[in-house]
């Protein structure tokens, strides 16, 4: 009797266990297949520029002239790479301190008001479609810059400003969470030594949460790096390195969206755009690895 129950009882559990395993296994399989096929697709198309069309990868990365459809065809993507990096890093430089200060305000200075009203408002920024950002940038920021600075108003400055607002929620949310998760004794310890509130925030709170803040900033840069539509609307889309922040230029993403529809699949121009996509993808990987590394550090 005792033996037979022992044998029978575990059965439903084992079945359940297997259903769970198979189900999660299928899900993860689909995910992995999707990711790998995407990487493979982008890589195989992107590499055709070098293998099929015989373009030197160095030329793509360092060349200054972009005219893949022209005669002779030129594949210099450095202006785009420069545009992507400069807009997203400049955006992070604007949004990083803003996000940190917003987080400090919401957690340290006015927790009630900040958490109840400010945080939802900032998180709302993340839900606004990028075309709206682009439109606002085009009709507000660009004319403003045109009036103040020499030039057309379009360019890196306008792109970075639009992007900074777009990535502000990412940075603020991560900084707020990190700030709220600090052990409360830490601040008290600093106050008890006679430090003022600002000394405490600047010397104790900021260094302690720096890895988390940097994680937020890198995620923000990654998002800015991949953003296409809003940037394309305000950056001007001229394929050269600008001499000022207020001169028309392009980014990797804007170059792709700008010409993808006008090229024939399989042509050298089309392949070159895939190469740009490959660069974008590889850069995103790099950002993800940086975030991982920072998170590993923050645990110590």
């Amino acid at each position: 009797m005792a033996q037979s129950t022992k044998v029978q009882q575990p059965k439903p559990h084992i079945a359940e266990e297997w259903v769970g395993r198979v189900y999660t296994g299928i899900c993860i399989f689909i995910l992995i297949v999707a990711i790998f096929s995407m990487v493979y697709f982008v890589a195989s198309r992107g590499l055709r520029t070098f293998i099929g069309d015989g373009v030197n990868p160095l030329e793509l990365l360092t060349g200054l002239k972009w005219n893949p459809g022209g005669e002779p065809a030129l594949f210099g993507a450095l202006p785009f790479i420069f545009g992507s990096f400069s807009t997203s890093i400049l955006a992070a430089l604007i949004a990083g301190p803003l996000g940190f200060c917003a987080a400090v305000f919401m957690v340290e200075i006015m927790p009630g008001f900040g958490r109840k009203f400010l945080q939802p408002v900032i998180e709302l920024l993340a839900g606004i479609p990028s075309v709206v950002y682009g439109f606002v940038g085009l009709s507000v920021i660009v004319p403003l810059f045109r009036d103040i600075f020499p030039g057309q108003g379009i360019g890196i400055a306008a792109g970075a400003l639009v992007l900074s607002v777009m990535i502000l929620p990412t940075i603020t949310t991560i900084a707020t969470d990190a700030l709220a998760a600090l052990p409360s004794g830490l601040k008290e310890g600093s106050y008890a030594l006679g430090a003022t509130r600002w000394q405490t925030i600047y010397r104790i709170v900021l260094p302690t949460m720096l890895p988390a803040l940097l994680t937020g900033i890198v995620l923000g840069i990654a998002r800015a790096f991949g953003e296409a539509l809003a940037v394309q609307m305000v950056i001007g889309n001229a394929p050269h390195i600008p001499r000022s922040l207020f001169e028309s230029t392009s980014t990797l993403t804007s170059a792709i969206t700008q010409s993808m529809g006008n090229t024939v699949m399989g042509s050298a121009h089309n392949n070159a755009l895939w190469s740009l996509a490959l660069i974008l993808m590889l850069m995103t990987f790099v950002f993800v690895f940086i975030v991982r590394w920072l998170e590993g550090r923050s645990k110590i």
Partner: peptide, 29 residues
């Protein structure tokens, strides 16, 4: 209050060292 707290030290139930080196923990004050 700042100079007062310099004259009165405080130690808590849970140790709360700063996320800094031992040296910096002490040099902070």
């Amino acid at each position: 209050v700042v100079s007062l707290r310099q004259r009165i030290g405080m130690v808590w139930q849970r140790p709360n060292p700063f996320h800094k080196s031992i040296y910096e923990n002490i040099a902070f004050g």
